[in-house]
Design a protein around this nucleic acid. Structure first.
Length: 270
DNA sequence: ACAGTAACCTGTTTGC
DNA sequence: TGCAAACAGGTTACTG
């Protein structure tokens, strides 16, 4: 579910509800996520105040004055702000409790993660090797071009590789490549600097546009208030195999690249 | 270093 | 209709 725009939407949604708030407890209903939820989390968190809520890649970083609660939504995770008294449903694995409300973690597939660290976040093993944030200045066409040299993987795999650039998942990789007319299967080292410059720009544009609309809801992504994101209606190719290309009218194609479904126009993308 | 695949899970859709 | 296979927004870990 959640790519960068969905995680950023969640971050913005929860921040004002929990920043400055004191944690009164935690409830772990199912500790078995991608990695086990630390069993001593309550003693680490209880009574402490939340300083800020940040995001790095698709990780949500809930900063306390000392230490950081790291959350990842995996494929199917979502977070909601709810009254403490709200009855938990199936797959509501974790609550962060405040005086009157709670932050509730819901994740059917349990690919998400909830971890605690007291080391500087940039040195954490999950964060250390990550590439640049796509929306910041150091992510450019020059950078992408340089990363592509010597690499023969499909360009779609290159831009979905978190060591190259973070936050670009399957939906937005397909969308950005369509918008710049690059075939997703094209070898990364067979693309010019000029085209990478347009690709970097388009990745920024499509992510920013999706954040503006509150992310993409395909089946079950929900925002912190339970509402869906509205970017799905602006998708041009994702999930649209067989439908006419918005550019030329030819039926859009679907193909598996690196285990992931890819959607593209054989006419408009070269 | 790079590229490809399996693995972690549950729920829904697709195909016979 | 029923059942099994395929597939889904992510990422790590392992193989060659």
């Amino acid at each position: 579910m959640p790519e960068l725009p969905e995680v950023e939407t969640t971050r913005r949604g929860i921040a004002s509800h929990i920043e400055g708030q004191q944690i009164t407890g935690v409830i772990i209903r199912q500790p078995r996520l991608r990695w086990p939820i630390p069993s001593d989390l309550e003693e680490k968190l209880k009574g402490r105040k939340i300083k800020s809520v940040e995001r790095r890649a698709k990780y949500l970083l809930i900063n306390l004055t000392h230490g950081c609660l790291i959350m990842h939504l995996g494929m199917s995770g979502s977070l909601r702000i709810l009254p403490r008294s709200t009855e938990p449903g199936k797959h509501d694995h974790f609550d962060l409790l405040f005086k009157n409300h709670c932050l509730r973690f819901h994740d059917p597939r349990r690919f998400g993660a909830i971890l605690w660290t007291e080391q500087p976040i940039a040195e954490h093993s999950l964060i250390r090797h990550l590439g640049p944030e796509p929306l910041l200045e150091d992510f450019t066409g020059d950078y992408l071009y340089q990363q592509a040299q010597g690499r023969r993987v499909a360009v779609k795999n290159l831009i979905m590789d978190g060591r190259v650039v973070v936050g670009v998942g399957n939906i937005y990789a397909n969308e950005a490549l369509f918008r710049v007319g690059i075939l997703p299967t094209r070898a990364a080292n067979r693309i010019s600097l000029a085209r990478y410059t347009r690709l970097a720009d388009e990745i920024k544009l499509v992510l920013a546009a999706a954040i503006k609309r509150g992310g993409t809801t395909l089946r079950d992504f929900q925002r912190e208030d339970g509402k869906p994101g509205y970017f799905a209606q602006e998708l041009l190719v994702y999930g649209k195999a067989g439908e006419p290309c918005p550019g030329c009218g030819e039926p859009l194609k679907q193909k598996r690249i690196g285990q992931r479904s890819s959607f593209y126009c054989g006419q408009c993308q070269k």
